[in-house]
């Protein structure tokens, strides 16, 4: 296989690995977002004087509904922002991978044709 094609293959593998890691991070953040939304909806149903605890490491510290709600809303905003950034990176990587795959298909076609 010509060195240029080998280099392209290597680059493709690297891009695919990066994409995989971006997808994993995005998936984790999406799960975190679902959890935050569920917690917010539970808090919404609770009365204002409900006893709320926030976990700090392995401890539970007593807090207030309004404070915890605000914290969660901030976390939600931040998580959404990070998901958007990762989404943009994902899109860019996918188009780079597609472009590289097309080039490689062209590179490899003459090699696979019967002599």
């Amino acid at each position: 296989m010509p060195p240029a094609v080998q280099e392209r293959l290597l680059r493709l593998q690297q891009l695919q690995q990066t994409l995989q890691s971006i997808l994993t991070q995005k998936q984790q953040l999406e799960l975190e977002l679902i959890e935050i939304d569920q917690a917010l909806s539970e808090l919404e149903k609770a009365s204002d004087d409900a006893v709320i605890y926030k976990s700090v490491g392995s401890l539970l510290v007593r807090s207030e509904k309004s404070k915890v709600t605000n914290d969660l809303k901030e976390r939600k905003e931040l998580t959404n922002m990070r998901i958007t950034v990762l989404g943009r990176q994902e899109e860019r990587l996918r188009s780079q991978i597609k472009e590289l795959q097309e080039k490689l298909q062209k590179d490899l076609r003459p090699l696979s044709l019967p002599q």
Binding site: E32, A39, A46, V51, I52, Y53, K54, L60, V68
Partner: peptide
């Protein structure tokens, strides 16, 4: 009962 509602928050 302290019941975990997710995202590191628990409620009595």
């Amino acid at each position: 009962v302290i019941y975990g509602i997710g995202a590191g928050v628990a409620m009595e």
